[in-house]
């Protein structure tokens, strides 16, 4: 809310980094300039302006002494830290606690979040993954953004230039929450001292600034630094640590005049500081060229068989198709395939890996280019199609049974029956003769049957009728026999008699006497 309204909620500026691949990594310039302060006093100041042509690939924020330095509150000479990454130019970076050595602000080093200050509103400089240079104030969300994350980030104090205009007064408002407490901060801005700063120009080149000095005695105040940078066509710039921390190392050697004294104080000594802004040879993408090449000035020089730009893919990766594997030596074809890109089947008669095996298929059998297996034509079988189908079988792989009557042979290829002797079928003459005679008889019989009138009932029908009649007769006889037997049995069981007085039988007298007689009762 301390930001000028004209800028709305946008509290930082972005600029696409330049990518001058053919230019040298950097250009280091020394200046010795006459500076006139507000009181009209002239002073000579000296320092360095360094232009970086490909910031994304050649700028790194380094922890003191190397990775992990901030975690251990380490402090190290810029020269020493610079050697860990072979920095061509290195200068001191962010602020740190001079008592404990603790790194301050936000720090992202080569894509690794070293320190998150939770949205502290001090001037920041960062490079995003896509090469965007960012200057200004950032929220914590900005710092932790994963869509286009920061690969380098460092914190300073005071946004010196914004869009080519001096932005110090706005910075004082933004970076301090109570105006009555800005007294010390105003002094910090106004005092002359050794200073370092980082910015960018219109092309997106990164500009490193360093001026020698000693607080209150030599050097520049931040107004002078901002104006100096503005005159150098710098668009955005932030102030980094200064005073005795201001250090400039060129090709591994100290190239600035430190303001701190040594012990004893006869000499001047560079200060062991915290983070370092390092300009190194362009890094390749990926840095190790995927292990298949060398990084030469930011470009991977790939080993044979590996393709640029990252040496991650084999040159033949897309060309070997489905029938080959891409190797450093080109396509290695599957069995049965040949050619530069494994697009051709083995020529006829050859099979296997590299098509270096010879097919053994006989009788016109075709050869499988992968395994060399023979596919026999109809009528032949065997591993090499060397055998004719056995008698009684025909067709592909001799799996069909001949349907010929009376052992007549069939054609091994088509299965058609041969009723005449086939010499090449290797059948005995006797057997062929039998086949022929039987065949002729069968044909004659068929002709006779075809000419004779067809009976009303067949032989089988008559047989059934006769059987039924015979069974009926037998059943009738059996029934009568059983009935007769039952009658006989009944007569024996009824052995009682009754006597009836008969008047006369066969002409006897009326008074007659009772005489015995029999009457059969049924």
């Amino acid at each position: 809310d301390c930001q000028p309204v004209a800028h709305g909620t946008v509290t930082h500026e972005t600029q696409a980094a330049s990518k001058h691949s053919n230019s040298p990594v950097l250009e280091s310039n020394i200046f010795i300039s006459d500076i006139t302060d507000d009181s009209g006093t002239h002073r000579w100041v000296s320092g360095h302006i360094t232009e970086v042509h490909d910031p994304l690939r050649s700028v790194s924020v380094l922890e003191p002494g190397g990775p992990g330095g901030c975690a251990h509150n380490h402090r190290e000479l810029v020269e020493v830290t610079a050697k860990t990454r072979k920095c061509l130019v290195a200068q001191n970076g962010g602020y740190f606690d001079t008592h404990t050595g603790q790194c301050l602000g936000n720090i992202i080093s080569d894509g690794k979040l070293v320190r998150n200050s939770g949205g502290i509103q001090n001037a920041q400089f960062g490079i995003r993954k896509d090469g965007t240079l960012v200057f200004g104030y950032l929220s914590e969300d900005d710092i932790l953004d994963q869509e286009n994350p920061f690969v380098q980030l460092i914190s300073g104090v005071v946004w010196l230039l914004r869009k080519g205009e001096i932005y110090i007064n706005e910075s004082i408002q933004a970076e301090c929450d109570k105006t009555q407490e800005t007294g010390n901060f105003r002094h910090f801005v106004d005092v002359i001292s050794a200073r370092t700063a980082v910015g960018h120009d219109k092309e997106g080149k990164l500009i490193l600034f360093h001026v020698d000095g000693q607080t209150d005695v030599r050097g520049m105040n931040l107004w002078q630094v901002a104006k100096f940078l503005k005159d150098q066509n710098v668009m955005n710039a932030i102030n980094l640590d200064g005073g005795g921390s201001a250090t400039y190392v060129l090709n591994g050697s100290l190239a600035s005049y430190p303001s701190d004294h040594c012990n004893p104080s006869k000499w001047r000594c560079p200060r062991a500081i915290s983070t370092v802004l390092c300009i190194h040879e362009r890094l390749c993408q990926p840095e190790d060229c995927s292990g298949h090449g060398r990084c030469v000035e930011g470009q991977c020089v790939c080993q044979h068989g590996w393709s640029t730009p990252g040496c991650a893919n084999l040159t033949c990766q897309a060309e070997c198709g489905e029938h080959g594997i891409c190797t450093e030596n080109g396509c290695v074809c599957d069995a049965g395939w040949m050619g530069l890109y494994c697009s051709q089947v083995c020529t006829a008669g050859l099979y296997g890996d590299g098509c270096n095996q010879t097919c053994t298929c006989a009788n016109g059998g075709s050869c499988d280019p992968v395994h060399g297996r023979c596919t026999c034509p109809a009528g032949f079988h065997g591993d090499s199609c060397e055998q004719e189908c056995p008698i009684g079988f025909y067709g592909l792989n001799c799996k069909q049974l001949c349907q010929c009557q009376d052992m007549c042979p069939c054609d091994a290829a088509t299965g058609s029956c041969n009723t005449t002797y086939q010499g090449e079928r290797n059948i005995s003459l006797h057997r062929a003769g039998h086949c022929l005679a039987t065949q002729m008889w069968r044909e004659w019989r068929q002709e006779e049957e075809a000419q004779a009138p067809r009976p009303y009932l067949s032989e089988q029908s008559w047989l059934v009728v006769c059987s039924i009649l015979a069974t009926s007769l037998l059943a009738s006889l059996t029934g009568n026999l059983i009935q007769t037997c039952r009658k006989c049995k009944a007569r024996r069981q009824r052995a009682d008699y009754s006597y009836l007085p008969l008047g006369e039988i066969n002409g006897a007298t009326e008074r007659g006497e009772m005489k015995s007689g029999k009457v059969l009762f049924q």
């Binding site: 301390c2 000479l77 602020y95 001079t98 939770g118 949205g119 502290i120 509103q121 001090n122 104030y137 929220s139 914590e140 969300d141 104090v157 005071v158 933004a174 970076e175 301090c176 929450d177 407490e181 007294g183 010390n184 901060f185 002094h187 910090f188 005092v191 001292s193 050794a194 000693q214 607080t215 640590d241 200064g242 005073g243 005795g244 921390s245 430190p258 303001s259 701190d260 004294h261 040594c262 012990n263 104080s265 000499w267 000594c269 560079p270 200060r271 062991a272």
Partner: peptide
């Protein structure tokens, strides 16, 4: 290490120091 003459840190230029006034709080934005 004997060759390195350590700085005496006598030119401290810090934006917020307790010795020059009340402690200063930074602004945080989330």
């Amino acid at each position: 290490c004997k060759d390195i003459r350590h700085s005496s840190d006598d030119d401290l230029l810090l934006p917020y120091t307790k010795s020059h006034g009340p402690s200063h709080s930074h602004r945080y934005v989330r």
